Structures are given as structure tokens and as C-alpha cells.
Amino acid sequence: MAKLWLSLHVLVAIIAIGPIAVAASLFPRFARESPTGVAAFLHRTCRTYAIIGIAVPVFGIVTGARMGVLGDAWLVTSVVLTALAAGLLVLGILPVQRRVLAGGTGARLAMTTGLFNLLWAVVVVLMIVRPGSTTGA
């Protein structure tokens, strides 16, 4: 059963986080060029997939519980980094995108988005490497 949960966790992570990473990264460029068309679509994409992305940590926690690794440092670190990434998305990316679409400025939006993507990259590495793992990976 742990393999099923792990598969769901990875699948939802790819389907949900990938589009957010791409759309959020493209938003600043298209907001300058086309503040109402493509930029609005990219913002909707980020917002929609953020909701779907809630399933990623849910499936991850279920998977961790099934595998008996909830207390492992790599998983705790991953959870903290995931929470930071979610906070950046909800508090630092989506509101600024909304403000830019309303005619405001998006200072530091590209930097915030880059940090969001970096956090996810670190989480992926932690999920693959799993420091202290006995699987030999």
C-alpha cells in the first residue's frame, strides 16, 4: 500500500507543482508584455494548481506514515521546506501577481519565484537521496 501512496504523491507533485513552477516563472515576463492576456492565464494556472497541490503534502504524510519515516530528519526538513514554499506561493507570489494584473508593480516577484522553485528542487533532492537511508540510494 505504501507504493500506491508514494506513486500518488509523486504523480500529484509532478502534475501540480510543475505547472506552478513554470507559470510563476513566466509570469513576470508576460506581465510586462501583456498584463491582461497571457499573464492573467498564468496567474489562474498558479492559483488553480496551488489548490490541487494541497494533495502533495497530504499524500506525502500518508506515505511517510506507511513507510515509518515521519520522524526522519530528511522528511522533517522536506516538510518544513514544503511549508516555506507554500507560504511563498500564498503570501509572496499569488498576491503580487494579482497586484501586477491590477496595474501595480511586481518588485522582487522573479526573485521570490526563483526561491520557490529552489525550495522545490531541494525537496526533490531530499526525497531522492534521503540522507541516512539504508536503501543505498
Rank of each mutant, 00 (worst) to 15 (best):
36 T>Y: 11
53 G>R: 00
60 G>V: 00
34 S>T: 10
57 P>T: 03
49 Y>P: 06
61 I>P: 00
56 V>I: 11
52 I>G: 02
45 T>I: 09
37 G>V: 05
70 L>T: 14
36 T>W: 13
38 V>K: 12
48 T>E: 07
48 T>Q: 09
34 S>M: 08
68 G>K: 08
65 A>K: 09
67 M>C: 05
39 A>L: 07
58 V>Q: 02
45 T>A: 09
67 M>S: 08
41 F>Y: 11
66 R>N: 12
34 S>N: 15
53 G>T: 02
44 R>T: 10
71 G>Q: 13
47 R>A: 15
65 A>D: 09
37 G>D: 10
68 G>Q: 10
47 R>D: 15
66 R>F: 13
53 G>Q: 01
42 L>R: 07
42 L>A: 06
49 Y>Q: 04
50 A>Y: 06
35 P>F: 09
65 A>M: 11
50 A>K: 04
40 A>M: 11
38 V>Q: 10
70 L>K: 07
34 S>L: 03
46 C>H: 06
43 H>I: 09
58 V>N: 02
67 M>P: 03
46 C>G: 08
58 V>S: 03
63 T>Q: 07
42 L>H: 09
38 V>Y: 09
36 T>G: 03
67 M>K: 13
38 V>E: 06
46 C>E: 12
37 G>I: 04
34 S>G: 06
60 G>F: 00
63 T>V: 05
43 H>W: 12
40 A>S: 15
56 V>N: 00
34 S>E: 14
42 L>W: 11
69 V>H: 05
37 G>C: 10
39 A>F: 06
40 A>N: 13
62 V>D: 01
44 R>S: 15
38 V>S: 10
41 F>P: 00
69 V>Y: 05
59 F>V: 02
44 R>M: 13
37 G>T: 08
69 V>F: 07
68 G>I: 06
37 G>A: 08
67 M>Q: 13
68 G>A: 11
45 T>K: 04
